[in-house]
Design a protein around this nucleic acid. Sequence first.
DNA 1: TAAACTGGTTTCATATTGAAACCACGTTGA
DNA 2: TCAACGTGGTTTCAATATGAAACCAGTTTA
Lengths: 169, 169
Amino acid sequence: MPQRVTHERAECPVARAVDVMGDRWSLLIVRDAFDGIRRFSEFQRNLGLAKNILSSRLRELVAHDILEIRPAPDGGAYHQYALTQKGRDLFVVLVSLRQWGEDHLFEDAEPHSLLLDTKNNRPVRKLEVTDDAGRVLNPSEAFVRKVTKARASSPTHGASQLTRSHVDR
Amino acid sequence: MPQRVTHERAECPVARAVDVMGDRWSLLIVRDAFDGIRRFSEFQRNLGLAKNILSSRLRELVAHDILEIRPAPDGGAYHQYALTQKGRDLFVVLVSLRQWGEDHLFEDAEPHSLLLDTKNNRPVRKLEVTDDAGRVLNPSEAFVRKVTKARASSPTHGASQLTRSHVDR
DNA sequence: TAAACTGGTTTCATATTGAAACCACGTTGA
DNA sequence: TCAACGTGGTTTCAATATGAAACCAGTTTA
C-alpha cells in the first residue's frame, strides 16, 4: 500500500524543499508567475497541463503560502494567483535550475530563452556558492553538519534518528 | 490516456531541468551523492525508498550522465555510483533549495542540518542573483527573453512556437 | 439573448509509486 | 564445507497520481 512518502519533518532543508516543490509542475507554475502570469487560463495555456492538475497544484501552492489569491485588479469576477514573499524567494532556485539547464541540457548551437537584467539587457551572472567571506566554494569545500542534539538536555538521548523500518523494501 | 508530459525539447532551460530533476527522489539521491554516498544499499538505507524505485532512478541519472558507474575501488564485485561533472554542477541548485527550505520550511526554534565550508566551519553565504557587474538583482529587475527566431532566415516564419493543442483539457 | 470564455469539478483510463517477495552471487564465519 | 547473511538488484501486485475529456455554473461579448 504505497502512500506517498513525505519529508515534511526531515531535518534536511533540501528534503523539505523537495517535498514541497519537487514535482513536475509546481516549479513551472512559479516560473510562469515570475513572468507575470496570474490567471488560471493563462497558466493552463502556457503550460499545457490538464485543468484538474493545475487546479490541484494551485491549491497546494496557495496552501503552502507560495501563491496567494487576490481579487481581480479591475474589479472583475475572477481572481488572481500572485507570488507571496515565500514564492518570490524561489527566484534563486529557478535561476540555478535555469543555469544548469542552459549549461547541460542544450546542444551547442541550440537556442534557448535567456534571463536578462532589466537595466542593461545583459544576461544575469552565473551563481556561485561562496563562504561567508565571499570566496567561491566548490562542492568538496563544503559539508553538511547534521543537526546536533541539544547539548546536555537531549530527550531521546542515544537513539539514532536515522533508524528506519527494517523490512526489505 | 495519460502519458507523461515531457519538456525535453522546451526552449526554456528551467523546463528541461525540471523534466530531468523534477521528481521526488532524483535531487535527494544527488544530495546524498554530495555527502559521499556511493552504494546502492547506502542510498536505500539513507533515503528509505523502495529498491525498485531507487534502481530506476539510478538508471535514469546514469542515462542522463549525472551519475556514472565505477568499479569498486577495492576491487570488490559491486560498483559505485559517482557524480559526473554535470552532476557536480547541481551543487548550486541544491544549495539554493536548501537555503529556501531553511528560511521558509522550519519553525524558528526548529533545528536543521547546516552547510558549512570545510575551511573554517562557517555557514555558506546566502546565494544572490546579480547582474554581470555583480549588483544584486531582485526578481522584478530581471526578465526572460524568449528565443529570437534567427533573423532574416526564419524557416517556419510566422507560426508561433507557443501554439498548443486546442482541446479542452 | 445566444455564443463564447472563465474557472473550475467529475469521471474514467492509464501510468507511476511503493511494499514485499524473490533471486543470484559473493562473503563470513563456525 | 556449508549455512547464514549482505548486496544489488528484478518481479509482482495493490494503491495512488496523472491526464484527457466531458461537464457545468457564472460572466462577458457580439
